[in-house]
Design a protein around this nucleic acid. Structure first.
Lengths: 216, 216
DNA sequence: AAGGCGATGGCAGCTTCCTGCCATATACTC
DNA sequence: GAGTATATGGCAGGAAGCTGCCATCGCCTT
């Protein structure tokens, strides 16, 4: 069974009961928090949320863009406090996706289009496949608190350059030469980088950089 | 449009033309290489593959289980040599998935069932969503060569212990003391760990450890 | 012009790290 | 027992890394 609806209101009308019928699991991937802008939709979601403490696993997967505003962060933290698992994926997820109880999948159409289309299905292969892919992305994504906590130390150009030479395994002397600065300055910058990464040793700095995926 | 077929043969009969009509992109996620066991299916895939050099981007995403046998590895390397991008996801992907030209999605049903069911669709929202999720997993997955190369360096207890002390930022002397070995031995083990991580400096070792998620 | 400020470079001394060499110990094989 | 392999510890010398101090330079403000 596959149905396609246009817009939030029609979605709620046709598939709203699915939201309220969640018994075990509700997973949701989205680029940001702007979906469900319609009051009716939000209301339906809220009604569902009220049940969540009762054993329904709710997982919300978002892209970093969802953390843009301070308000968004507060909202997400609130959700997390209510038991919703929130993770941040490294890439945007333009097509919003919902899987309910591993039985129904709801996917939003191209966001570039005007009125948003939603496709709802209960085909086992589709639902299973989508859920499985979701789970893969979920596994690779990082916990909200961890993401906010690390606070992604913003490195300036000099620090990035230092990071690169360190990653190459050069000696300080060679690195300083390639960067065109003195040994003293280079080491000062290494010290600055380590401070930025809250590391006391170069090993710790490297580990931190690796964990944060600072490749450059 | 959504159709469901039972078994490889019927899939090829009903959707085989999709494989041969690839023009831009062919992506595929699977747990292992056992799919397409049927000769007809393999043949269809092979015909498709013959075109791939002509600009079709082929991405194959597998779980580590696909690397079980030496034969599998050879096969994958062969594919890679032919221009197929092969990556290994960290988790198994029980539901096999194919997306062709971002226009058609084919998803296999529960592998536990007897005859395998396949669902084929061209619903934009479904295809787009599946593709997007695939891309997310893909991004988090690791290149075949990198995976085989690094081969998840298996660290013994001694190396794990060293890793822990290094992560704590202790000096070698303190670390050696807490581990109850001499300074010389401790440093030998650090050198061994660095060799295992293919690192030339402690920074690189830390980075590698961070990237590999070696927390302990 | 004068002064403050921040980044740089040189120097020096210190700590830490790295490794080759040798001696010892333990275990395993023949 | 003799021989071999492997892990350990000590020592020493060298390489690399760290940082305090001071002088210099460019830039900005007053």
């Amino acid at each position: 069974m596959v149905i396609t609806v246009r817009g939030d209101i029609e979605l709620v009308a046709r598939a709203g009961h699915l939201f309220e019928g969640v018994t075990r699991e509700f997973v949701c991937a989205a680029r940001d928090l702007s979906t469900w802008a319609q009051p009716q939709a939000r209301e339906a979601v809220r009604r569902r949320m009220a049940w969540s403490p009762g054993g329904v696993g709710v997982r919300k997967l978002l892209s970093p863009a969802a953390l843009a505003g301070e308000e968004s962060r507060r909202h997400l933290r609130l959700l997390a406090a209510r038991g919703v698992q929130v993770r941040i994926a490294s890439r945007p997820l333009p097509y919003e996706t919902i899987v309910i109880d591993r039985s129904y999948a709801i996917m939003a159409g191209d966001p570039a289009a005007g009125v948003r289309e939603y496709t709802v299905t209960d085909e086992p292969a589709l639902v299973g496949g989508v859920w499985s892919l979701f789970d893969g992305v979920w596994e690779a994504a990082v916990e909200l608190e961890a993401y906010l906590g690390t606070d992604r130390p913003h490195l300036d150009d000099a620090e990035r350059a230092v990071l690169r030479t360190l990653s190459l395994g050069r000696t300080d002397e060679a690195a300083a030469r390639t960067l065109g600065v003195s040994l003293r300055t280079y080491r000062r910058r290494v010290a600055a980088l380590m401070a930025a990464l809250e590391a006391e040793t170069r090993f710790q700095a490297g580990k931190r950089a690796g964990e944060l995926g600072l490749t450059s």
